[in-house]
């Protein structure tokens, strides 16, 4: 083994998220399953990336690893200049606090908190104060002004997901990961949510990584990555829904 190999490669300077040689194996011995079999990628700051692939392609696992909520069996991940695969759970948690935002399929709001309190949750966990102007602006953009004092159970699915998006953006993370954000919404609300995500990329320069299996949702992204059997098999810029659909058909 040479010394050059022992040192981790340095991250590309412009990418906000970089990964090299990601392998993720589940289980041991004969029953072991490789979900990711060597993934390299670089995601540009301020871009909207969709990760697509059929069930079992490893797209969710990849997102979990990039977001620092799962650890690869091998390989290195940098997020916003930090090698997150080299830091311990506590440091990783604190890193996520300020650098990563999440939007979940099932919204995952705390039911006993109001919309406003859910929105402020990442800040209050970190013990920091919201930037009042940014917060007002966010509330304005997601269109929740009159709903802030409501509990999640009093909001529609679309409204809940808006709160979740505002929550993901509140501390201006380096990257927001969205896991099937429209998967639990009807098409009208789904479209609105996608537009909101698009808007945050265009207006705030937010980087968004979205996992989806819906070609129409993926069409809103700047870049679409296709996964199959744990490999990135194709990367395309600005595809429309039909084109994505065609690619997906070849992968299944």
């Amino acid at each position: 083994m040479s010394t050059a190999e022992a040192l981790p490669p340095s991250p590309p300077s412009t990418a906000v998220v970089s990964a090299r040689g990601i392998i993720r194996r589940f289980g041991e011995g004969d029953t072991a399953v490789e979900a990711l079999r060597g993934v390299d990628l670089d995601l540009e700051r301020g871009s909207f990336i969709a990760i697509m692939g059929p069930s079992g392609s490893g797209k969710s696992t990849l997102m979990h690893i990039l977001a620092g909520i799962d650890t690869p069996t091998a390989g290195t991940v940098w997020v916003n200049g930090t090698e997150i695969t080299a830091i311990k759970d506590k440091a990783l948690t604190l890193f996520r606090r300020t650098n990563v935002g999440f939007v979940f399929q099932f919204f995952n709001l705390l039911p006993m908190l109001t919309a406003a309190e859910n929105l402020d949750l990442p800040l209050s966990i970190a013990g920091s104060k919201p930037d009042a102007e940014w917060r007002r602006h966010l509330v304005d953009v997601v269109g929740l002004g009159d709903r802030l004092s409501h509990r999640p159970s009093e909001l529609s699915g679309g409204q809940q997901q808006r709160v979740a998006i505002a929550r993901a953006l509140i501390n201006r993370p380096a990257v927001v990961f969205a896991d099937e954000p429209t998967g639990n919404l009807d098409s009208k609300n789904g479209t609105e949510i996608l537009n909101l995500l698009r808007q945050s990329v265009d207006e705030f320069g937010q980087t968004i990584v979205m996992v989806t299996h819906d070609p129409k949702a993926a069409a809103i992204a700047d870049q679409v990555m296709f996964l199959q059997d744990g490999h990135i098999v194709r990367v395309e810029q600005h595809m429309d829904g039909d084109a994505i659909f065609d690619v997906m058909k070849t992968l299944e």
Binding site: A67, D89, R96, R97, V100, F106, N108, L110, P111, I125
Partner: peptide, 16 residues
Amino acid sequence: TREIGMMRAVGTTRGQ
């Protein structure tokens, strides 16, 4: 479970 997982994802430490 899901709530606590979400809180962990957005930066709540195990200690918290």
